[in-house]
């Protein structure tokens, strides 16, 4: 159902109602202070929202600012509610929906350990080269590859590696920025 919106430029404007869950990437600028991550995570668990991926790191040391990048799923109404609830937290400076605001770059880093001999080992190395993964550790029976890419790229690589003696995977979670010259 579409509700015809008025002419106002209100920041909290109507969106289409939809019951279809979508995946959105939110970028949240917060004060880097004790407990801030617990506040964000507690909000998600307490209100029953999903977290698919979450990364956090200080990005502006002098201003004590950290950026939290959250990938979450929900109906458009739930996504808006998540953003508004995040906005209520006192240490939160800004919340931007990178999925909605247009073009953004999303990258993740993965370390992938494979073990094997013979053809499996050769195939693993060949695939790693095809994906432009770096070999950061090697023994006679194993490799650790480092791969940076979109989460989908990494999913694809990891899936292929299961055929080549995959042992374990470590992923950083998503880092994302909007394209263009302006910051959030």
């Amino acid at each position: 159902m579409m509700i015809v919106a008025g002419q106002s430029q209100s920041a909290y404007f109507l969106e289409e109602t939809s019951t279809v869950a979508e995946t959105h990437t939110l970028s949240v600028l917060v004060d880097n202070e004790p407990g801030v991550l617990a506040r964000v995570i507690g909000l998600f668990s307490g209100r029953g929202y999903n977290i698919e991926s979450l990364t956090v790191s200080e990005v502006e040391h002098e201003k004590h600012l950290s950026r939290i990048t959250i990938v979450t799923t929900g109906t458009p109404q739930v996504i808006t509610q998540i953003m508004n609830q995040l906005g209520r937290l006192v240490p939160v400076h800004r919340v931007v929906n990178l999925t909605k605001s247009g073009d953004s770059i999303e990258r993740e880093l993965a370390l992938v350990k494979v073990a094997g001999k013979g053809e499996h080992r050769v195939e693993a190395l060949r695939l790693a080269q095809a994906f432009e993964a770096k070999t950061v550790d090697a023994t006679l029976e194993s490799f650790v590859f480092e791969l940076t890419g979109t989460p989908a790229d990494i999913d694809r690589f990891v899936n292929l590696m299961t055929e080549c003696g995959l042992v374990e995977v470590a992923r950083t979670g998503l880092a994302a920025l909007a394209r263009g010259k302006t910051g959030m």
């Binding site: 509700i3 008025g6 106002s8 209100s10 920041a11 909290y12 404007f13 109507l14 109602t17 109404q77 808006t80 509610q81 508004n84 609830q85 906005g87 209520r88």
Partner: peptide, 17 residues
């Protein structure tokens, strides 16, 4: 006064924060 109250349970045609 709380933006998160708006469209939380019931959709507002004209929200005013």
């Amino acid at each position: 006064i709380d933006p998160s109250s708006i469209n939380k349970n019931v959709r507002a045609d004209i929200p005013i924060v």
